[in-house]
């Protein structure tokens, strides 16, 4: 291998390290349908110690524990909702990367649209007055 090619290969290997750190084969469930559900749910769950990563792509120990708990719930026959409820019961809504719609989060969900409407009204009023 030429030197530049070797350096490139080394760089790529280093870059791929975090991607390999997360889920390892020993964690996976034997049933592919169950495993697919576990992967889908894990993508929507926040790793609470590395807050903008999901537990599916985080290599943190806690993320692995939560992946294991999640799979244990699915193996025990939980529906997707029940498995998520198990985790929100313990870690709060905070573990959901997609925050639920409820009174405490109304500001989060509706404020952007509210500001857009307000801005539109102000613009309309401004142009009306100029006519």
């Amino acid at each position: 291998m030429t030197r530049p090619a070797a350096i490139l290969a080394l760089l790529l290997a280093l870059l791929s390290a975090p991607a390999m750190a997360a889920l390892d084969a020993s964690e996976m469930l034997a049933d592919p349908a169950l495993e697919a559900r576990a992967r889908a749910l894990a993508k929507g769950l926040r790793c609470v110690v590395c807050q903008n990563q999901s537990i599916d792509d985080s290599g943190a120990d806690l993320a692995r524990d939560l992946r294991r708990s999640l799979r244990a719930r699915l193996l025990a026959g939980d529906s997707d909702e029940e498995a998520l409820a198990y985790l929100t019961h313990r870690y709060g809504d905070y573990v959901l990367l997609d925050p639920p719609l409820k009174p405490a989060t109304w500001a989060l969900w509706f404020a952007p649209a509210g500001f857009a409407v307000l801005a539109l009204l102000l613009v309309v009023r401004y142009f009306r007055r100029r006519e």
């Binding site: 609470v48 120990d61 806690l62 524990d65 708990s69 313990r90 709060g92």
Partner: peptide, 10 residues
């Protein structure tokens, strides 16, 4: 760390 999960330990 399974009891930790029950307690919501981070």
């Amino acid at each position: 760390g399974q009891a930790g999960v029950e307690w919501g330990v981070t």
